[in-house]
Design a protein around this nucleic acid. Sequence first.
DNA 1: ACAAAAGTGTTCCTGTTACACCCATGT
DNA 2: ACATGGGTGTAACAGGAACACTTTTGT
Lengths: 205, 205
Amino acid sequence: MNDTKPSGPIAAAVALFTIRERLEFLRLEGEHGRIPSVPLEEGETLEACARRALWEAAGIEDVFLEQLYTFDGRLGGPRVVVAYYALAPHDRLRIRRSGVGWMDPTRASTLVEEHRTIVERACERLAGKLEYAPIAYQFLADRFTLGELQSVYEIIGRQTLDKRNFRRRIRASWDLVETHDARREGPHRPARLYRLRDARPPLEG
Amino acid sequence: MNDTKPSGPIAAAVALFTIRERLEFLRLEGEHGRIPSVPLEEGETLEACARRALWEAAGIEDVFLEQLYTFDGRLGGPRVVVAYYALAPHDRLRIRRSGVGWMDPTRASTLVEEHRTIVERACERLAGKLEYAPIAYQFLADRFTLGELQSVYEIIGRQTLDKRNFRRRIRASWDLVETHDARREGPHRPARLYRLRDARPPLEG
DNA sequence: ACAAAAGTGTTCCTGTTACACCCATGT
DNA sequence: ACATGGGTGTAACAGGAACACTTTTGT
């Protein structure tokens, strides 16, 4: 491909995050590092446009998506770029295109500046919302262990947490439902599975 | 005027708030209630566009301005509307155009829907940021009394606060500098004037 | 048997709340 | 003199932080 995109005045860009072992975001491979981004089409909503960016870049759909910020575009590009961030559990993602891969946000400096800014601000927003919005759950399956949940908090918040305090706090903040199942995996005691009761998506603006 | 605006694909809309006795926002008078909004011009940044909206509507400049959210436009209007909120102390505002006035946000329902949403979400954002961002100070002059500051918190937070607790909390959260001046006004003890030391504007996104 | 993560309570400390009186001034 | 908002401290309470051991499993 070349650098001249078929660009309208408005584009949506999406930083898609997932957690494998660390936090990672979806990056288009190529000379200039970029994240998925497409121009807004006629009759399309901004959110639909953002979802299409993920679909066209990687064949990914059905992710949690939230608007981040709107930036002035660079010369030769769209006039404005509406940035979104997306979250999904890693195992629910199936990348169906080549030329995309996962990258550690601490290496966002290899992206074009505009997209680097988006990734960095998305990370800050994520850490900020962790405590008052149910975003951590977006990285997990419907049923999850408290250990998995704690890992998400630790990875996004960039600090280790005390297990007992974490459990008390999380049970006070969110309406977790203890299922009767457990997950057996590895040479240790099985972990009870939980669900988040009222997993209403946050509003925010 | 009529309903067909000379509209490009992108517009900025601004909800300007001030505090007189209550919280108020700047409204364009007319059949359909609106807030200032103009299409983005060639070579103009979004923020400049938002400032121009205030300037063209009311001759207002030099306000604190922060992006709120980007909305899909309505049919017949711009394709996207980038919403901002602005804050300023009332006495620093000089309205230099006719056809604009102040309105209580609780009466935002008289606005066109898109602008009503902007005003409502701006109010929520304001209340939410009150505790961790120095937005209250944007409603005050450089030097202010703690009583004035408390009024701002009470008005935006929609609750009365205990004077002693407020003072302790505010002095713990912000770096306030006690000046040697006081303000004499009314049949009571003069109030000491304070400045906010490091009044760095919040980043946010 | 042992290695590995799951699970569980108590104490301490810090920050938040509730609360009442004197001060300096203008009229 | 009195009415008005400015200014101050303390005790009770709640939420957060620090901290160690037992349980259940796979190998």
